[in-house]
Amino acid sequence: MYAVFKRELFGLLNSMMAYITIGIFLLASGLLFWVFPQTSVLDYGYAELTGFFELLPFLFIFMVPAITMRSFAEERREGTFVLLATRPLTDWQILSGKYFSCLALVLLALIPTLLCYFTVYHLALPTGNVDSGAIAGSYVGLLLLGGVFAAIGIFTSSLARNQVVAFAVAVFICFFLFSGLDALSGIFGLRALEGLLLGLSVSEHYRSLSRGVLDTRDLVYFITVAAFFLGMTRLVLGGRKW
């Protein structure tokens, strides 16, 4: 599995794609954090990152599928999957190698955003008067969110031959799970299902982590959703329709 992980990670790091994706992500989050007056911490007046962490998932909805879209779609188009499938590796090893390499890249993209934390830390009065617990919780939430989105992206990538299709479908599923279920629960006619829809909604669990409360229910939720999509991917791979 490590061999696949390493090859995939180096493959991502050697492609312009990954740098452009991460670059755009950092640029967008930087603009939101420092420049755009509606969301900028400088105009906000309070030394906290809540607003910032409410916006990052929306950037994730685009960034993570952009990283994962090539993983299986490209193998499929080039016919190279046979190179992996006939090595002494199980489908799970191939799958997890690819999944964790994408996740490592997501982690890499998140590291520079710590700068925002240091900014706020030093802007606070007195210095250091920030809710570090909530921020740590938000980072754990973002990472888990990245894990779920990466699983979705890998899954759509295994279904599509075309990377753009894989990207678009993944963005939609991520968006639907994150915001769609939330919004649906607000529909008057679906009031009876409100609890269920909110329970399934990614954003609900993400919000709960952002408060700095590491609840096992949220952890179980994120891991279950990611495992579900990876399991579906395993089924697609096992079918070998390509």
Binding site: G11, S15, E78, L83, R87, L89
Partner: peptide, 19 residues
């Protein structure tokens, strides 16, 4: 089929690692 974006040695090293 080959991973055409890799170098020859790099690719063969990867195959050896996969075994």
């Amino acid at each position: 089929p080959l991973y055409t974006e890799m170098y020859v040695r790099e690719f063969l090293g990867f195959v050896a690692a996969a075994y």
